[in-house]
Amino acid sequence: KSAAEAARKQAAKDAVAKQQAAEKAEKAEKAEAAAKKAADKKEREEAAENKASRSSGRDAGSFAPQSSYSVSQVQAMARQMVPAGQFQCFSNIVNHESTWNYKATNASSGAYGLVQALPASKMASAGADWRTNPATQIKWGLNYMNDRYGSPCGAWDFWQANNWY
């Protein structure tokens, strides 16, 4: 009787342990699924935010060409082209690189324009008028910052650490 009772008690303990293990595994599975769902949601939100930071208001071609531009006109163009949440970072870089002079030329390197593209001719990918049109330079600079650093603020973070970007 005692051996049978001991076996029954052991079987009951084993059944309880098995049930607890199954419940623990189910909990872990649910937690993992919830974590994956949260990570997927965060990834989608970051992708949407990144897309929003990359999309710009006006395109470079929507500004009428002029023979020259004041700093305030160039800044106004940038405010319309650069996403609002990224403008200050973009502005910080341009302030340091060219003080908003779209004809700024680095005598030693040949870097040119608002964002000091090197070689300057790279900006031709944004428009043939890159030498004289600040909107074309803004377009190229914004694309460069987005492609290389994820955003103007990513570029500004790098600039602060290295004094170049």
Rank of each mutant, 00 (worst) to 15 (best):
S2A: 06
A3V: 12
A4D: 12
E5P: 02
A7F: 09
R8M: 09
K9A: 15
Q10V: 13
A11L: 13
K13Y: 13
D14F: 07
D14K: 14
V16M: 10
V16E: 14
A17V: 14
K18C: 10
A21S: 06
A21L: 05
A22S: 10
E23D: 06
K24L: 10
A25D: 04
A25L: 05
E26F: 01
E26R: 08
E26C: 02
E26A: 13
K27H: 12
K27A: 15
E29H: 10
E29R: 11
A31P: 00
E32F: 04
A33T: 01
A35Q: 10
A35V: 03
K36G: 13
K36T: 10
K37H: 07
K41T: 13
K42P: 10
K42S: 15
R44A: 15
E45C: 06
E45V: 10
E45N: 07
E46C: 07
E46I: 04
E46L: 14
A48N: 09
E49A: 15
R54S: 14
S55H: 07
S56Q: 08
S56I: 13
S56W: 05
G57R: 07
D59G: 00
S62E: 05
A64H: 00
A64R: 01
A64T: 05
P65M: 00
P65V: 06
P65Q: 01
P65C: 07
S67N: 13
S72W: 13
Q73H: 05
Q73M: 05
Q75W: 10
Q75N: 04
Q75S: 03
Q75R: 13
A76K: 03
M77Y: 09
A78V: 01
R79Q: 09
Q80N: 01
P83T: 06
A84R: 11
G85P: 02
Q88M: 04
S91P: 01
V94D: 02
V94I: 13
N95I: 05
N95V: 07
N95H: 03
H96P: 01
E97Y: 08
W100D: 02
A104V: 11
T105P: 06
S108Y: 05
S109K: 08
A111Y: 04
Y112E: 02
L114Q: 11
L114W: 11
V115L: 10
V115H: 09
Q116H: 05
Q116Y: 09
A117E: 14
A117N: 11
A120S: 13
A120K: 11
S121H: 06
K122P: 00
K122H: 01
A124K: 08
S125L: 08
G127S: 08
A128S: 15
A128H: 10
W130T: 01
R131L: 11
R131S: 04
T132V: 05
T132S: 01
T132W: 02
N133T: 00
T136A: 08
T136Y: 06
Q137W: 02
Q137A: 13
K139G: 05
K139S: 15
L142A: 08
N143S: 09
M145C: 07
M145S: 11
D147Q: 14
D147L: 15
D147T: 14
G150R: 14
G150M: 14
S151Y: 12
C153G: 06
A155K: 07
W156S: 11
F158H: 12
F158P: 02
Q160C: 09
N162H: 11
N162V: 06
N162K: 15
N163L: 11
N163F: 03
W164E: 03
Y165S: 14
